[in-house]
Design a protein around this nucleic acid. Structure first.
Length: 743
DNA sequence: ATTCTGAGCCAC
DNA sequence: AAACGTGGCTCAGAAT
């Protein structure tokens, strides 16, 4: 009975809705015939439009009222719709773009010049030679510095007050000078060491000039990398940044100059060589003009931080050339290895997939077949299959502990591991061979992180680059030394701990390195009041549990881990974890004081310094004052306090790595067949002839140990190994011993 | 059809 | 309230 009533009610409700909708529809048809444009706007603007559409619609409405745009005759008979309004917006935007371009050309400043003739170029060349510093930029067909070509270049000459663009390959009918001729004529300027060059993203342009066989020497400033030093948070809008380090985005904020980006002006996939010359001039010359102005602004501000200026000019600027070489040298991949290994992985993944699908399909609801890669589908399916609700699909935290009890989870973990490996590394990397050089090229961004480490990855819209710094051990053997060469890897042994020893002055740490002992075992010995040997290694050579535990707690301390996470990692309760950490701090009071000091400093100043005040890490959230429990800024502030200590350590260590890279590069430059092959934060890898000598190996050791010292007490350490394949190395001594044995 | 976001996982 | 610092890539699914 009850059921019936409910059914009746529902069906009654449904039919009522239908009726209302029929009435509405009839009304709409009537409206279509009679609706005024004002009524139409009211209706359209009341619809569920997203913010962007709403703004567009208002623009169109205003334009119609102003009479700048009208409905097309084809649409006039139909009811005015949102779709039509948005079509009109497109038309409007296009007209505005054309108007912007027209106005840009009309307003071209008098001191912007196109260089089209030999006479003009020769005159320009003379003027360039008379400058002290010049802003330089290239326009190209794309972002692949080994394949794309220069279609024009611009220069800003501050003494002469001229801003020029030299087109060399535009489709414009106006005759242009050839690239070859321009480069040869300007060669004395381009390769002049003491005529300074200022660029925005110099790595790209240096590589472009080199791609055509010319060296751009004398780069003294890069407004992009300098901007990172002046405000590493610039791409973080939450911290007041403009959201990017593009010249066009920086100009309004720092120079008060409005500037449209390439995409906005010319469209997303536009080719600059197809831009008419009058327009190309004002766009390209403005680029170097802005670069010059930004340079002046940056000089003024960095001069107020002499230690930063010194670091920038002696490390970061010369490093730009090192990176060009490093990226251009590139890698060779063993494609047979990749193919065989990939095939193996694919087969196993198919087996696992079939088994998992068979097991899990009964627990999967939904029309579509179960997708093993979908967290959304797999979480409920697995939960049902094992009879336990999972909070997430985190392999390490959630799945691994259940692996022993459930075969399906063990299989899933293997499946995830394999598909990650093939999908991201083994199958994918081989596709990224550069068509021109036939090598693989990574990209190293010296300012890719807020602390000063390199980041590695691909340039926007350049699919052939890849991140070389996160290659797992399984993928590394794909990378092989070129014929006749070997890879020599040298790492900084315990780089960050040595850095902390130096910055904090903690004797327990300093003594560990003075006595050339293992720092974790030293800390454990000090903490447990037991002999060093007892806590270093077990009888079978494995690590002791004391040393392992010390490593965990050490990292927790360095990274500011919470007591909850620490308890979880140690497998003890929170109280025990807190006790452990406070006991540890008591055993190293100077370390504790240093960490507390970092927090105090950042709370007061909103930033911290790296070693020798070379670089600042700005953490404005540290200055937040909390008002009682439940303050919404609690998380932000604590995060900033954690970042303070970490940034000092990571930032200082990255400086050591960069300075060492400079010396390593200089060393390689003087030795035929030697080059820098890669860097992964705390290690440098060299590519060297396979008959390199013991003396040369000693030079590498010297470069690692003595390029950048942590004061005059804490020593550096390094382990050096030799490899034919990345990751399959033998210690340097073994390499020479086995070599001498076979000779 | 293309772009964005979040989850997850690779490195040091 | 949040819980470990710095990155980049892939895939799914949603948004545009």
């Amino acid at each position: 009975m009850t059921l019936n009533i409910q059914l009746n009610l529902r069906s009654n409700g449904d039919s009522q809705t239908e009726t209302t909708e029929r009435v509405k529809a009839a009304g709409n048809r009537k409206k279509a015939a009679t609706e005024t444009i004002e009524e139409a706007w009211e209706r359209i603007l009341a619809m569920k439009n997203n913010d962007a559409d709403q703004a567009r619609l208002r623009e169109v409405k205003a334009a119609i009222q102003a009479g700048t745009i009208g409905r097309s005759p084809a649409d006039a008979a139909k009811r005015f719709s949102k779709a039509e309004a948005l079509r009109m917006h497109k038309e409007l935007a296009e007209r505005q773009r054309e108007e912007t371009l027209r106005k840009m050309v009309e307003d071209t400043p008098d001191n912007y010049e196109l260089i089209l003739t030999r006479e003009q170029l020769i005159d320009l060349s003379a003027h360039l030679m008379a400058e002290d510093i010049v802003a330089v930029d290239t326009e190209t067909t794309g972002v692949d510095v080994y394949t794309d070509v220069i279609v024009g270049m611009s220069f800003s000459l501050p003494n002469a007050d001229r801003h020029v663009y030299i087109p060399v390959d535009h489709t414009d009918e106006t005759p242009q000078l050839s690239l070859e001729y321009v480069l040869h004529t300007l060669q004395p300027f381009l390769q002049h060491e003491s005529i300074g060059k200022v660029l925005h993203n110099a790595i790209f342009d240096i590589a472009m000039f080199r791609r055509h066989g010319f060296d751009l020497k004398g780069v003294v400033w890069d407004t992009m990398t300098a901007m990172h030093l002046l405000n590493e948070n610039e791409n973080d809008r939450a911290l007041g940044g403009v959201g990017s380090f593009k010249l066009k985005d920086l100009a309004p904020k720092y120079l008060g100059v409005a500037s449209d980006t390439f995409d906005t002006l010319f469209g997303k996939n536009a080719q600059f060589r197809e831009v008419p010359l009058d327009l190309a001039l004002v766009y390209a010359a403005k680029d170097t003009h802005l670069t010059w102005k930004l340079y002046e602004f940056q000089r003024e501000h960095m001069a107020k931080m002499p230690t930063v200026l010194e670091y920038y000019q002696t490390v970061e600027v010369p490093l730009l050339y090192v990176i060009v070489d490093l990226e251009a040298n590139g890698y060779i991949l063993d494609l047979d290895f990749a193919k065989d290994y990939g095939e193996q992985l694919r087969k196993r993944a198919e087996e696992l997939s079939a088994e998992l699908i068979a097991t899990l399909t009964p627990f999967h609801d939904g029309e579509e077949p179960l997708n093993l890669n979908s967290v959304q589908q797999m979480k409920p399916a697995i939960s049902k299959a094992i009879g336990k609700e999972l909070p997430n699909m985190d392999a390490k935290k959630t799945l691994k502990p259940l692996k022993g009890d459930h075969d399906v989870i063990a299989k899933l973990l293997e499946y995830k591991k394999i598909t990650k490996l093939s999908g991201t590394y083994i199958d994918t990397l081989p596709l990224k061979q550069n068509p021109t050089t036939k090598r693989w090229h990574s990209r190293f961004n010296p300012m890719g992180t807020v602390t000063g480490r390199f980041s590695s990855g691909k340039e926007e819209s350049n699919d052939s680059q890849f991140n070389v710094q996160n290659q797992p051990p399984e993928a590394r053997p794909m990378f092989v030394a070129p014929p006749g060469k070997v890879l020599v890897g040298a790492d900084f042994k315990a780089q960050e701990i040595r850095c902390v020893a130096y910055l904090s002055g903690e004797p327990v740490l300093i003594n560990a390195f003075l006595e050339e002992r293992d720092p974790y075992a030293m800390m454990a010995s000090n903490f447990y009041k037991r002999p060093y040997e007892d806590v270093y290694k077990n009888a079978d050579g494995s690590d002791t549990k004391e040393r392992k535990q010390m490593k965990v707690v050490w990292l927790a301390t360095l990274y500011g881990m919470s007591k909850y996470s620490l308890a979880e990692m140690l497998g003890v309760d929170v109280k025990a974890a807190v006790q452990f950490q406070s006991d540890l701090f008591e055993s190293m009071p100077k370390l504790n004081a240093w960490i507390e000091g970092n927090k105090k400093f950042v709370e007061q100043h909103g930033f911290v310094w790296t070693d020798k005040q070379a670089r600042k890490r700005r953490l404005p959230d540290a200055k937040l004052r909390l008002k009682g429990w439940g303050d919404p800024n609690f998380g932000k502030k604590n995060r900033a306090l954690r970042q303070a200590t970490n940034a000092r350590v990571q930032g200082s260590s990255s400086i050591q790595s960069k300075v060492t890279m400079l010396r390593a590069h200089e060393y390689c430059a003087n030795k035929p067949g030697w080059s820098l092959w890669s860097t992964v934060h705390d290690e440098l890898i060299f590519e060297v002839p396979e008959d390199f000598t013991r003396a040369e190996a000693e030079d590498i050791r010297d470069i690692m140990l003595n390029s950048y010292a942590w004061g005059d007490v804490v020593t550096n350490g390094t382990d050096i190994e030799v490899m034919k394949r990345w990751g399959n190395g033998v210690p340097i001594d073994e390499w020479f011993k086995s070599k001498e044995a076979t000779e």
